[in-house]
Design a protein around this nucleic acid. Structure first.
Lengths: 209, 209
DNA sequence: TAATTAACTTAACACCGTTAATTAACATAT
DNA sequence: ATATGTTAATTAACGGTGTTAAGTTAATTA
C-alpha cells in the first residue's frame, strides 16, 4: 500500500524537478535555447528519462505555460477589491504590462511562442487559468459598460480589443521592434504608448457616471 | 572586362535564386520549417554553397524581411493620395491589417520572429523600407494632430501606439491566441476588434475640423 | 604552359528532438 | 527462496539542424 504511494510520490517529485529545471533554464535563456538535453543534464538524468514524464518538448512548455497564467492571476487577484470598475480596468491593464515587464520569458511563452498552443488546442475543454484571467477582464469591462463606458459595445469584444492593445505594446517591446523605429529609448516609448492608451480610455465613457 | 561583368551578374543571379527559393519555402512552411538544406535542394546546389552568398540563416531571412517591408509599402502607396489625414490614417490601419491577413508568414517575419532583428540592429544606420513605412504613419498622424486630433500628444508616440493596437490584433491572430479565449470565430473576433479601434479613433478629435 | 583564383562540393562537427532496444532494480506469486 | 513479471532508467541510434574546414574542379591570369 504505502509502498506504491511512495513510488507515486517519487514520480511526482521527479516530474516536479524536471519542470523546475526547465523553468530555470527557460527563464535565463528562453525557449529556443533550452533543450531537453540541457534539462536532463541539470537534473542529472538521461535525456530519455524526460520522455517517461512528458510526451514531448511542447508538453513541458505547456506545463510552464499554465504556470505562467497562475502567476498572471496573482498579479490580478488584489485588483478584485477595486470597487470602481473603470479604475479596476485601468489597474488590470497596468498590472498586465507590469507582468510582461517582470516576466518577459513567461510572457513570450504565454502569448507569442507557438509551441504551447498545440497542447492547449487539444485540451480544448480545460484551460482554467488562462480563461480565469480573460474572464476577469471581461467581467470588469462588463461592469464598465453598465456604467456607461464603451456604450453599445460587446464586453467580450471590448475586452479582446483592450487586451490586443496592451499585448501590442508588450510584444513589440519583447521582440525588439521598438528600438529600430524610434530614437526614443525602447522602454520610454512603451511607457508613453501606455500613457496614450490610458488617455484614450478616459475618453471612452459616453454617459459619464 | 565584360567577362567579369558576366560573372558578377551570374553571382547576383544565384543569390537571387537562393532568395527566391527561400521565399517560396518560407511562405508555404514558415520560418522554423525552412532549412538551409531545403533551400539548397530546391535550387539544386549543395547546402554549403549558400554560405558563399549569405553569412548565415538570419542573413537570408533578413533579406526576406526587408522584402516584406517593400511589399507593405506597396499596400500603403495608393493611400498617399487620400487628402484628408484622418481618413488616410484609418485607411493605413486597414491596409496594415489586410497586409497581415494576406501575407501571414511575412508578417510573422517582419514583426514577430526574432531572427531578422539581429541583422537589422547591426545595420543600425540603414533600414530604409522599414522606416519609410513607419514615417508614413507618423506623417499622417502629424497631420491629424494639426487638425485637432490627438490633441497635445506627440505624433511619434501616437503612431507607435496605433501601430501597437493593430499589431496586437494581428499577432494574437497569427499566433493563435484568439480561438482559445472566445467562442467566436477567430477572424470574426479580430474583425470586431478592428471595428472597436475604428470606433475609438472616431472619438479622438478634440476640436473637430 | 604553369600558377593562381574562384565556385562549388564532400566530409565532418556539434548540436537537436525523439524512438527502440536493453539493462538493472524491485515486487509479487509460487 | 526462487522464479516471474513489472517498472524505471539507461545506451544506442535515427534523421534532422546550422555551420566550418578541407578538398576538388574549372576558369583566368602570368
Amino acid at each position: 500500500m504505502s509502498i506504491t504511494a511512495r513510488k507515486e510520490r517519487q514520480k511526482e517529485e521527479l516530474k516536479g524537478k524536471i519542470l523546475q529545471a526547465a523553468k530555470a533554464l527557460f527563464m535565463e535563456k528562453g525557449f529556443e535555447e533550452t533543450s531537453i538535453r540541457n534539462i536532463a543534464e541539470k537534473i542529472e538524468y538521461s535525456p530519455t528519462t524526460i520522455y517517461l514524464y512528458f510526451k514531448d518538448k511542447d508538453d513541458i512548455f505547456h506545463a510552464l505555460h499554465t504556470e505562467g497564467f497562475v502567476l498572471l492571476n496573482q498579479y490580478f487577484r488584489p485588483l478584485a477589491h477595486v470597487s470602481d470598475p473603470f479604475e479596476r480596468l485601468k489597474a488590470v491593464m497596468k498590472a498586465y504590462i507590469n507582468f510582461a515587464k517582470e516576466n518577459g520569458e513567461f510572457y513570450d511563452l504565454m502569448f507569442i511562442i507557438n509551441s504551447p498552443m498545440k497542447s492547449v488546442e487539444k485540451e480544448a475543454g480545460e484551460w482554467e487559468e488562462g480563461k480565469r484571467a480573460f474572464e476577469f477582464l471581461i467581467g470588469t469591462v462588463g461592469e464598465c459598460i453598465q456604467r456607461g463606458y464603451f456604450h453599445g459595445m460587446d464586453a467580450e469584444v471590448v475586452a479582446f480589443t483592450l487586451w490586443s492593445m496592451v499585448h501590442g505594446i508588450c510584444s513589440l517591446e519583447i521582440r525588439n521592434r521598438c528600438s529600430v523605429v524610434s530614437a526614443l529609448n525602447q522602454e520610454d516609448l512603451a511607457n508613453k504608448a501606455t500613457g496614450v492608451i490610458q488617455e484614450i480610455l478616459e475618453r471612452m465613457h459616453s454617459k459619464p457616471q
